[in-house]
Design a protein around this nucleic acid. Sequence first.
RNA 1: GCCCCCAUCGUCUAGAGGCCUAGGACACCGGCUUUUCAUGUCGGCGACAGGGGUUCGAAUCCCCUUGGGGGUGCCA
Length: 510
Amino acid sequence: ILRIEDTDIQRNIEGADAKLREDLRWLGITWDEGPGVGGPCAPYNQSERLDLYRAAERKLLESGRAYYAFDTAEELDAMRKEASAKKISFRYTRPARFPSDADAERARAEGRSVVVRFAVPDEPITVHDDILGDVTFGAGEVEDLVIVKSNGWPTYHFAVVVDDEQMRVTHVLRAQEHLMNTPKHVFMQRALGYRTPVYAHLPLVFNMDGTKMSKRDKHKVVRAAVKEKFKSKAWTKEEAALVALCELAVLERWLDKADTELDMAQVGRLAEAAGAVVPEIEVHDFRLSGYLPEALLNFVALIGWSPGGDREMLTLDEMIQAFSLDRINKTAGRFDREKLLAMNTDYCASVGPKRLLAAFKDWAAASGSPLASLDAATMARALEACKGMRTLRDVETKAGILFAPNEAVQYDPAAVKKVLEKNGGAGYAMLEKLLPEIGTVEPWTAAGVDALIKRFCDALGAGLGDVAQPLRVAVAGRPVSPAIGDTLELLGREKTLQRLKICIESRGAG
RNA sequence: GCCCCCAUCGUCUAGAGGCCUAGGACACCGGCUUUUCAUGUCGGCGACAGGGGUUCGAAUCCCCUUGGGGGUGCCA
């Protein structure tokens, strides 16, 4: 079941659930009931199920298991701050007598804020968790939580309890950060006469530094880089605001950890200018970076779970087969990007050309790569020539220049020096000797090019590297490209000859 | 502060009292392959947090200490 929990109307972002569904679709994760497919418990957006929550709220209010409260958020905030200053723990004090419906009506009429709180029974509770075992909370540990906000919308805690019952949810598997919420939910289930589903709290996913991995890390990394620029006096705040295309005051709030002040486009601009790399956090980030969904899925599944033994590479179907609650760990796991990369490398090499081509097309389109416009046959050749790639993006990095116009070639000074100018310009001399020969290759294929270079080397008594490297730098501008035969085949005869001439003519130009 | 959870190589993990001289993968180090990069391949380094019990026997069970994490919202 896919259920969209969108009860925070202030923070709902337009199109967020469409993106979420697209991420799931990309990963190959489907749902039997939910948005798009319908089901017996429709609608599946909580924002469309308000009547259900209203009815449950009524029931709780009438049975004296919930009550109205009139404190404002600001008042509560002040009380919490005061308690924290005194180093005592704050817990909401339940009124001796619960306000009536009429009291609530009056308060509303006076413009005061009205919420509904659940009256948590003053007794200890033991909840069972299928991973952690029994967890006991003492009497009075659980506070009377707000279940209906002053805007009339239910809180998450209340909505899930109602929906889980109504949707016949049997298992609640969620992150361990929800463990403390479970007694609240179970108390509410009891008060409403609901069943309690099986709970299983999954270990958290950490960054390598042991902090919880979250979307905010993107802001964190860029913020640190920007502050570093201020520190070294490389930037002023005004300049940074200019880069981000925002007002100075907005930037300052963002610097003060208000993530929502800047959007990712603005953060991206700051990152680029500051030379910071925004880490991939969300599914879509990994898609844009050139990861295969099967690799991401496999990697993530292995954080906090294992099929047992030495098995590691699994398809989604195999994971489903092997899955069992009792193989889930209690310990948080770190998100090791090196291992993900290694796994992605494995998948790129093993999925087969057809699947790899499809994945590459998806990546090129999603990321806006210039290679997206190549025909399928050329893409397949490029993929083959880039065997050993770690990510799909590596193909662009390594071979992209071969599909760009000649003017795009930029000669890397270090490479020119090392490969072309060294030994009195031996590289250039080699290119001049090669120029009249290379054009004669027929047909223009990697094998043909390789054969010619081999003959050329033999005739000169030169090593393959003495010829291939100058050639590579001449056509790609850098010492990195696919194998020389593949490089020239992908470039094409005409452009190869053009770039060779351009390179030779550029000699000494600086 | 209070409540709760956790603890095997640097990282993800295997391990259900004797199969453990603790296995695999990533990373790291070294060799080989290679016309560049990346692959590939062979080998090496490397852990049961500490202390008490229980037991003939403990990485596995119990307790304490220490360390890490989560929660403490009209967020989810």
